[in-house]
């Protein structure tokens, strides 16, 4: 691999935003294919996801890695668009109504971006109607719901129920600290993930199966 691409992957893994930006700039100035830069970035985030899932790193380390990834993407994204390289899949994401926490949702969002998903972020305290409107407007491959509070889990159930009536049907995945696989099954979600890295794997699997 090219030296600047190696440096980019290393910078993402270590959460070094300035290094990530410099390596991205160097790779693009050297005329490397934008897809190869994206692949180097994705390799770094994949490594972060694996270590997060294995509990060898925790949320702060993932946040700084994701921030480094975003610094790289700020330079890379216009070049990708100009080259006609677009994300294969898209996802609408938000924290459910009544819940103002965004850290889990943001982690999933950044990991999805690192895996080259187009992410439409609806923010926090998102109603079923706002999710439904976003589905109608963006026609995503998936919807992802997040909740941190035990007290907002019933809102998640209500939103899944409302979204399940949409035609054509849309796949829904759920997650968040208090959510369990049993709860996800019980409310009729199509998938559950325990952490941000698993959410990316789940999203990739559901999108690939739908093709």
């Amino acid at each position: 691999m090219n030296e600047s691409l190696n440096q980019l992957t290393t910078a993402i893994k270590a959460g070094k935003r300035k290094d990530a930006r410099a390596a991205t700039a160097a790779a693009l100035e050297a005329g490397l294919p934008p897809q190869s830069v994206l692949d180097a970035l994705t390799e770094g985030m994949n490594d972060v996801g694996v270590r997060f899932k294995a509990n060898t790193i925790f949320v702060p380390e993932v946040l700084v890695a994701a921030r480094a990834m975003q610094k790289s993407m700020d330079l890379l994204e216009p070049v990708l668009i100009a080259s006609g390289i677009e994300p294969e899949f898209s996802i609408v994401i938000g924290t459910v109504e009544g819940d103002l926490h965004d850290i889990g949702k943001n982690l999933v969002m950044m990991m999805l971006k690192g895996a080259n998903f187009k992410v439409i972020d609806l923010g926090v305290n998102v109603s079923a109607e706002a999710f439904a409107n976003a589905v109608a407007e963006h026609k995503p491959d998936l919807v992802a719901l997040s909740a941190l509070l035990t007290t907002t889990m019933p809102a998640m159930e209500s939103i899944v129920c409302d979204l399940s009536r949409i035609e054509p049907p849309i796949k829904i995945i759920v997650g968040g600290a208090p959510i369990t696989p049993d709860f996800a099954d019980q409310i009729g979600a199509d998938g559950y993930s325990a952490d941000a890295a698993s959410a990316v794997e789940l999203a990739q699997k559901l999108c690939a199966n739908a093709q």
């Binding site: 959460g15 949320v59 702060p60 380390e61 946040l63 700084v64 921030r67 965004d102 850290i103 943001n106």
Partner: peptide, 11 residues
Amino acid sequence: GLSDFLMDLID
């Protein structure tokens, strides 16, 4: 701010 605090812990 939670995200900033968590990143500060590292940076």
